[in-house]
Amino acid sequence: MSLAFNELSSVVLETPLPDLSVLRGVAVTALGVVAVVTGALVFRVDSMARATYLLAASFVAVGAAVVALHLDYVGVVVVLMMLMEMAVMGVFMVMLMGMNPALMPMSMVHSGRRALAAAGTSFVVLTVGILLVDWPTRPDAPPSDPGATTYSLGDALMGDHMLVMMVVSPVMLATIVAGVVLAQAHGRYERLGDDLRGTSRQGGRR
């Protein structure tokens, strides 16, 4: 996809392709800025739907930046998962906020000043740290084939880092089960009776 982007820009600008890394740098920076802006707007807008999908936009921007850094698989999966999660989250927002979402100005802030101070401090500390540390640079050139990186991820997950896979999978399964158990008010036996056919159910209204 980053290749497609290159082609597109070369056509639009009608100039020979500039240095790939420059273009990539501009793209990643711009996408990062978009992610930060949309992320900040999440807590500024009045509408639950807009807040949810601004967060989704932030994730899509980061996903695109990750793709531009040749981590195609991870980037597209970020987009996929986060669109899905935000679609579900929107429903929960509406369900749990307890007010009319589209219309009402919402300010759900408590201890806003303290939170702002904490966030500002963390940003300053992190930035200073980032600028002070002498980051190592890789000896070789950055990867050029995103397909190979996807392959190496799979290779790692099924080889050296098998343990990660083996831990993550049962955790996910446990999450599904626990989530259903916690969230469900009435099991199907309670709803449908012992035979699960609904015949012996005393529910309804009489």
């Binding site: 996809m1 290749l3 497609a4 195609d72 698989y73 597209v76 999966v77 987009v79 996929l80 669109l83 899905m84 679609a87 084939d145 995103p146 397909g147 996807t150």
Partner: peptide, 16 residues
């Protein structure tokens, strides 16, 4: 149009 290395996942993302 786009010879994406993860085209199958891409399709999945769009259908989401």
């Amino acid at each position: 149009l786009a010879d994406a290395s993860v085209g199958v996942v891409w399709f999945n993302a769009v259908d989401v």
